[in-house]
Write a protein that binds this DNA or RNA. Structure first.
Lengths: 331, 331
DNA sequence: CTGAAAGCGCTTACAG
DNA sequence: CTGAAAGCGCTTACAG
């Protein structure tokens, strides 16, 4: 246990611990001469302030909580990358809170509060408006700012960073309709995610405008299970276009279509969302909506730092641009 | 700020704060009657102990640090999943430390120490034996146990959870050699990872045994850059088999081979490592070494809890089993 | 510009 | 079985 404390530094520098503390936190309040002396001792002794003690005394932990459901989703991992990079710039640490379905929301939120984080980034998109209200309530009463990252809520009081998923859903559908496709399916997830609801809305709007009936097919996100679900398509259904709410769903569907003798893109065009590695590793390469997930993470972390430092923020609802990357799976 | 403290509980229950503390930490030392009374008040008031204050007083934060380089790597994300699940069972929180190349190792380690974590899981595999020594030194002098997860070090004092990558590299190479392939390439990464060094060693051993010259080709991990690197293969080189140290590399290579008129698996067989989604979404499906990354995360977290609680651990070097999943990319 | 002192919200010997 | 008190390592008014 090599624990150099602030007392050791104060002793060696022949100042009080208050002065050592000031050198670290308000250096401008200390005479240059003493400041330099203290700094020298700090270096010599290899002193690092105990983050926990500081947290208790100052009531600031410089730690943000990041709430996620499933780390293994590529979008979540990418957001974490953006969050982590910006957090490092601002000297914030990251505490991870993984939420399982079987956990009580309020309970979990109270746990996060007890952890004394200075702010929260909420990436867990599996939530209803009721949950949103609960999140607002708990964090508000505890004075903890939070930001939704790639989670959409129509509540204008909720700080949020995302893309316009409704628009994206509309645009990708239009792309296929403009190619004279009529039987356009949307392959969505069985679980309701806030972002997928928006994609579905955009898709439905485009279909309605074209006088077509929306056809939403819900499947598990699991690649292995998809096969059985999807195989029914090619016997029973007329289909000439499909949009997967995730690239992995789209690629998986495309593979099965090809196994069933469909030519992509001649017989069937396919598009996805997220523009992940899957889109590039599939054959044919997948047309996809590029969602800047890294940026969503980075921007939401930056927004959170402003909120934590009480800066008056002009816009707490940030919509990042997206675009369609056209590849060989569409014409 | 709705901050219920231990004083509030003590007051309402008409006991001292010491008793409230005991109810939470050593319930058996409190008479049932008072225990129940205190528990009732705790619930009524919605009291949650301030984790930071507890950390300072007890010198235990019930937090583990997880050191990673790149969260977006599928294996890292999967390990995090395993770590997080087990951490939740044992009531540990997770603090994430992302390491960038430009950061000084010793400095970062000191930062982690200052964060007062009770233990560290080290997933960052980009390290030399010199770094390993430094890690040992810093954590030892501070009494912080640590475990390498999916990072290999030959130092027997270092707690580690991994698979036998050398053996896996050997086996997958043998699989291809036994299929009468002669020109077997290993597609590795430009950056040296400890695990990839082992794969290379196993590959080389199998090649040497067969009287063949090892042919290791180093490429960037970046899917986009691979194309240029790989395209030279089909004009200059004799090749009838390739092993990618990651599935994504193998799939990317396979796609380019097919674009160059190669039939997989007739002309060329391809295999990968990790058995990720890529292996299933590629056409043909990729033969791959299944690495139980989730389990590596879970087991390393469990090992760490034992180390943190000074349990005498029989084996600090755990090798998990792997196996080859044969699919259409090999015969 | 600097120091003495109180306090952050807990835990933990020590008495009784 | 329970309480009074010291202490964990800092920060921050308050004086001077």
């Amino acid at each position: 246990m090599s624990n150099v404390t602030i007392y050791d530094v104060a002793g060696a520098a022949k100042v009080s611990l208050a002065t050592v503390s000031r050198v670290l936190n308000n250096p401008e309040k200390v005479k240059e001469e003493t400041r330099l002396r203290v700094l020298k001792i700090i270096k010599e002794l290899g002193y690092r302030p105990n983050v926990i003690a500081r947290g208790l005394a100052s009531r600031k932990t410089t730690t943000v909580g990041v709430v996620i459901s499933d780390v293994t989703r590529a979008s979540v991992a990418a957001m974490l990358g953006g969050i982590s990079d910006i957090a490092q710039n601002y000297n914030y640490s990251i505490k991870l809170f993984a939420i399982r379905e079987d956990m009580d929301v309020t309970d979990t939120l109270q746990d996060i509060v007890a952890e004394q984080v200075d702010g929260v980034l909420y990436l867990n998109d599996e939530l209803s408006e009721k949950h949103v209200d609960e999140i607002k309530r708990v964090f508000h009463t505890n004075g903890i700012p939070f930001v939704f990252a790639n989670v959409v809520s129509d509540d204008n009081e909720v700080p949020m960073v995302s893309i316009d998923y409704e628009k994206a859903g509309y645009e990708i559908t239009r792309l296929l309709l403009d190619d004279n496709r009529k039987d356009v399916y949307l392959l969505s997830t069985a679980r309701r995610y806030s972002v997928n609801d928006k994609k579905e809305a955009g898709y439905s709007r485009a279909m309605a405008e074209a006088g077509l009936e929306p056809m939403i097919f819900r499947t598990s996100g699991d690649t292995n299970i998809n096969r059985q679900h999807f195989s029914t398509f090619f016997s029973d259904k007329k289909i000439d276009a499909a949009i997967g709410v995730r690239d992995s769903i789209a690629v998986s569907f495309m593979n099965i279509a090809r196994d069933n003798g469909k030519d992509v893109p001649a017989d069937l065009v396919v598009a996805g969302f997220q523009n992940t590695k899957y889109a590039l590793l599939s054959r044919p390469n997948l047309t996809s909506i590029d969602v800047p997930v890294y940026d969503i993470g980075a921007v939401s972390m930056r927004l959170l730092t402003k909120l934590m430092n009480q800066h008056d923020v002009d816009n707490i609802r940030i919509i990042l641009p997206h675009y369609i990357v056209k590849r060989q799976s569409t014409t």
